[in-house]
Design a protein around this nucleic acid. Structure first.
Length: 422
RNA sequence: GCGUCGGUGGUAGAGUGGUCAAUUACAACAGACUGUAAAUCUGUCGCCCAUUGGGCUACGCAGGUUCGAAUCCUGCCCGGCGCA
C-alpha cells in the first residue's frame, strides 16, 4: 500500500472533473481542495490551530526556505514539518524548483507567472523597466547577475545538468541543490507528499530553452524518484509527485506529461509558468496524459476563476500564496469580486467583508473595523484578512467539490463567476 | 520696547536670483500581487485644458530692485528666543 492514494468518488460526465478523497498518512483530503501555503512552516499570520476551522485540509511548505533556515535537521528534530508547526493534517513540501525561477531567472525583476491582462494595460508608452507590468525583459537566460547580492561566483542561481548552484538570499552564502539533495532534505522535513526537483522556467522563455529545461526536469524527475525509492523507510511514509513542465508550449506540455506519467510517481504536480490564456487550453490536454487514478496538484494556482478551470480539467489539489499575500496587503475576496479594504469607501461600512461568507471573521467583524485596523497598521488587520481569504478559497474548493458530486458543477460555476465578475 | 531668528503645498521639512508648481518624508487617493527574498511594490498627489504640451494662481501681507524673485531690499502682520 502506497502512502498516498486517491479514491475517486465521483466524476463529472463528459469532463475530466472529479471529486475524491486523497488518503495520506496524516489523514484524508476531500478533493478538490485548496492547500494553504506555509513556506517557512507557517501559514503567514495564521496559527495552525485555526486552520481547521478555516476549512484548510493541508499545507505545503518549502524545501529551499526550510533548508536555509532553520535547516532541515532542526525541523526533523521537531518531528517533521507537520509536528514542528503543530499541524496534524496532511502536509506537502515543494522541492525548491520554483526558487530556481524566482531566485534565478526572475530574480529582482517584477516578473509575474501570469502575463498581464492586455485589456487592463495602459496604452503603450515607453516601456519602463521599473514598471512592474512591463514584461519586456529577456528572462530566457538561466542565470542573472545581481549587483547587490552577487558574490565571488557572481550569480544567484546557475542551472547546470547536475543541479543548481545558488546564493542564499539571507547571507549570500553558496549552496547547491541536486535532485538527490532536494529529496534528502524533503525526507528530513518529513511531509506526507514531496515533490521531484524541477526547473521552473520563466513564462516567456523561448521554445529552445523551455525544451532544454523540460528535458532536464525529466532527467531530474527520474533521479528524484530513484533517490526516494531507494530510501525504504521514507518511501513507506512519504509519497512523491513528479512535476510536469513545458512552459506555454502545448506540444512540450503534452510531451512532458507523457514522460512524467511514464514514471512511477504517486501523483503529479503541474508546474507554473504559463499564461492565463494558455492555462485554459492546455491544462485538460496535460491531464489527459496523466493516469486517471493518481492525484494531480496544480502548483501555485489559485484565483477563484482558476480553481474552476483547474477542477474542470481534473486537478485535485491547488495551492497559492494569494489568499495570504492579498490578505496581508488589504485585498479581500468577496462573492462580488476582490475589494481593497483600506480604501476610503469602507471607512463607515458596517457590513461584514462578504455578506454571503460564513467564515469566523465575517461572523464577527465589520468592514469599518478591519479598514481601521489596516489604516492604523495594526497587525490584526492582515491576520483577519488572511483568515477570511483562506476560508474563501478553501470553501470555494469545497463547494466545487460538492457541485461535482451532485452534478451541478457548471451551473454553480456560471452563477459564481457571474457574481464574482459583477 | 530693543535685538535676534523664523514664517514654503494636508503635516513635517528642503530650497536662498533663472534648470521651481517647488527635493524628500509622512498623510491622502488609487492600483498590482498566482509552487512567497512581499505586513511588499507601483502610480497620482495646486487649478484648468491637452497626445507630446499649454495656460493660470502660488512659497505670511503690501510694495520695490531685476530681463527674471520662494530666493535680494523696504514696510507691515504673526511666532520663537534673548535683553530690558
Amino acid at each position: 500500500m502506497r502512502p498516498i492514494s486517491l479514491q475517486i468518488e465521483k466524476e463529472l460526465p463528459g469532463s475530466l472533473a472529479r471529486a475524491g478523497i486523497l488518503h495520506t498518512p496524516h489523514g484524508d483530503i476531500e478533493t478538490p481542495a485548496f492547500i494553504a501555503v506555509a513556506t517557512k512552516a507557517d501559514v503567514k499570520g495564521i496559527e495552525a490551530a485555526r486552520l481547521a476551522e478555516l476549512g484548510v485540509q493541508g499545507i505545503i511548505a518549502n524545501t529551499y526556505h526550510l533548508y536555509l533556515s532553520p535547516g532541515e535537521k532542526i525541523v526533523q528534530i521537531g518531528g517533521g514539518v507537520g509536528k514542528f508547526m503543530t499541524f496534524d493534517r496532511p502536509t506537502m513540501t515543494d522541492s525548491g524548483g520554483f526558487q530556481v525561477f524566482s531566485l534565478g531567472v526572475g530574480f529582482g525583476k517584477k516578473i509575474s507567472k501570469f502575463l498581464p491582462d492586455e485589456s487592463r494595460k495602459a496604452p503603450a508608452k515607453g516601456r519602463d523597466e521599473h514598471d512592474p507590468n512591463s514584461l519586456l525583459q529577456d528572462f530566457s537566460a538561466p542565470a542573472v547577475w545581481d549587483e547587490d547580492l552577487a558574490t565571488s561566483h557572481g550569480k544567484l542561481a546557475i542551472v547546470d545538468d547536475e543541479g543548481v548552484s545558488f546564493t542564499s538570499h539571507l547571507d549570500g552564502s553558496l549552496h547547491r541543490f541536486t535532485p538527490e539533495r532536494s529529496i534528502e532534505i524533503q525526507h528530513a522535513l518529513g511531509a506526507d507528499i514531496i515533490f521531484a526537483f524541477d526547473e521552473c522556467t520563466a513564462p516567456n522563455a523561448e521554445y529552445e530553452y523551455q525544451k532544454e529545461a523540460m528535458d532536464r526536469t525529466h532527467r531530474w524527475a527520474e533521479r528524484s524518484l530513484r533517490a526516494h525509492r531507494q530510501n525504504v523507510e521514507k518511501n513507506a511514509k512519504q509519497g512523491i509527485y513528479g512535476i510536469v513542465q513545458g512552459g506555454r508550449y502545448a506540444d512540450l506540455r503534452i510531451e512532458s506529461a507523457r514522460e512524467i506519467a511514464s514514471m512511477d510517481f504517486d501523483g503529479f504536480g503541474i508546474g507554473g509558468s504559463f499564461s492565463k490564456h494558455d492555462l485554459l487550453g492546455i491544462l485538460d490536454k496535460v491531464n489527459m496524459e496523466l493516469p486517471k487514478e493518481k492525484p494531480r496538484h496544480l502548483l501555485g494556482i489559485g484565483e477563484p476563476e482558476d480553481l474552476f478551470i483547474g477542477a474542470a480539467a481534473g486537478c485535485d489539489t491547488f495551492d497559492c500564496v494569494l489568499p495570504t499575500r492579498n490578505g496581508r496587503t488589504g485585498g479581500l475576496y468577496t462573492h462580488h469580486g476582490k475589494i481593497q479594504i483600506p480604501n476610503a469607501e469602507y471607512k463607515e461600512d458596517q457590513n461584514p467583508i462578504d455578506s454571503e461568507c460564513t467564515c469566523p471573521v465575517c461572523a464577527r467583524y465589520t468592514k469599518s473595523y478591519i479598514h481601521h485596523l489596516f489604516r492604523t497598521g495594526e497587525m490584526l488587520g492582515p491576520i483577519l484578512a488572511s483568515q477570511h481569504n483562506l476560508y474563501f478559497l478553501a470553501n470555494l474548493a469545497r463547494r466545487i467539490r460538492e457541485s461535482i458530486i451532485d452534478g451541478s458543477f457548471e451551473k454553480f460555476r456560471d452563477a459564481f463567476l457571474a457574481g464574482y465578475n459583477h
